[in-house]
């Protein structure tokens, strides 16, 4: 398992990086944490002619909160975000999902930008970005643009990013005050790709659901935002019957693939089970908003 030959560049600034991407875009790959890319290269499933290592670009790994938005540099290590007190306080849904991304050793190197750009159909971070209506900023030699989560994920391992673009920042809104949250997933083993995963946010006002967010991973080529299920919930009082209806709506909204670990039918079924359980748990965490 030795990779094919490649040329290696190590830019020190974002400008240098996007210049290299402009030159090599189609033949090049960005190396961030390497936790997905390097195995693909070692197995020769991917043979990029050029590797652009962005790990030494200063300032790309910063984490800030401003005006209720968490701003992560693309190079923010997953483990750093997982353990950040800001994330714990303002977006515990993200923290809970991060805990299930691979294993700690992988999260020590893996980055938020890398995971999102890689767009694995069973990734946690892509579902979180979808659930919370996050967005990414991408830079290329031609300029800067913002891509909303709803527009970002195209299909398996494919985002709307051009090969010459580099994610520089990820923005995730903090949870609303008093919001309850839950991340639940089923995997064959701790740390494995989710067979199905659900992230839920609930805001309760005067005893009824004011805001509901449900996003799933592992149930299709991209993360699924279960809009129909969300609309079923808003304006109603929480109840087990309501959760069951939401679970059915989620099942209707997903068309998972089967593989040797779990059939499509299982994933669809479990997506509903997890939705119910996550809604229950999210409710238990809500604090009535003013």
């Amino acid at each position: 398992m030795k990779p094919a030959r490649f040329e290696y560049f190590c830019p020190r600034t974002v400008d240098e990086a996007v210049d290299l991407l402009a030159r090599y875009g189609d033949d090049g790959k960005v190396l961030a944490g390497g936790q997905s890319l390097v195995p693909l290269m070692n197995m020769r499933l991917a043979r990029p002619a050029v590797i652009i290592d962005i790990n030494r670009i200063d300032g790309l790994g910063d984490l800030r909160e401003r005006n209720g938005i968490l701003r992560f540099g693309a190079l923010t290590r997953q483990r750093a975000a997982e353990r950040s007190p800001v994330v714990a306080e303002r977006c515990p849904l993200l923290r809970d999902a991060l805990r299930l991304v691979g294993h700690a050793q992988i999260r020590n190197r893996g980055t938020l930008g890398g995971s999102i750009a890689h767009a694995d159909p069973a990734a946690e971070l892509t579902a979180i970005l979808s659930a919370l209506d996050g967005e990414v900023t991408a830079r290329s030699a031609r300029g800067t643009r913002t891509i909303a989560a709803a527009d970002l994920f195209v299909t398996y391992l494919t985002t709307a990013l051009d090969p010459r673009e580099l994610i520089v920042e990820i923005r995730i809104p903090a949870l609303s005050p008093g919001a309850g949250w839950s991340w639940m997933e089923i995997a064959r083993r701790h740390g494995d790709f989710a067979l199905a995963g659900v992230g839920v946010v609930l805001v309760i006002r005067r005893g009824t659901i004011a805001e509901a967010r449900i996003a799933l991973t592992g149930v299709g080529p991209t993360p699924v935002r279960a809009g129909a299920a969300e609309r079923l919930l808003v304006g109603h009082a929480p109840s087990d019957t309501l959760w069951t209806e939401a679970a059915e709506a989620v099942r209707a909204a997903v068309t998972p693939d089967g593989d040797i670990h779990a059939s499509a039918e299982y994933r669809k079924h479990v997506a509903g089970v997890l939705t119910q359980r996550a809604l229950r748990e999210a409710l238990s965490r809500t604090k009535e908003a003013a």
Binding site: I186, R188, L195, H261, A262, S263, Y266, H269, V270
Partner: peptide, 8 residues
């Protein structure tokens, strides 16, 4: 076995 098989 597997979770899928047990559930089945």
């Amino acid at each position: 076995l597997s979770p899928d098989r047990v559930r089945q």
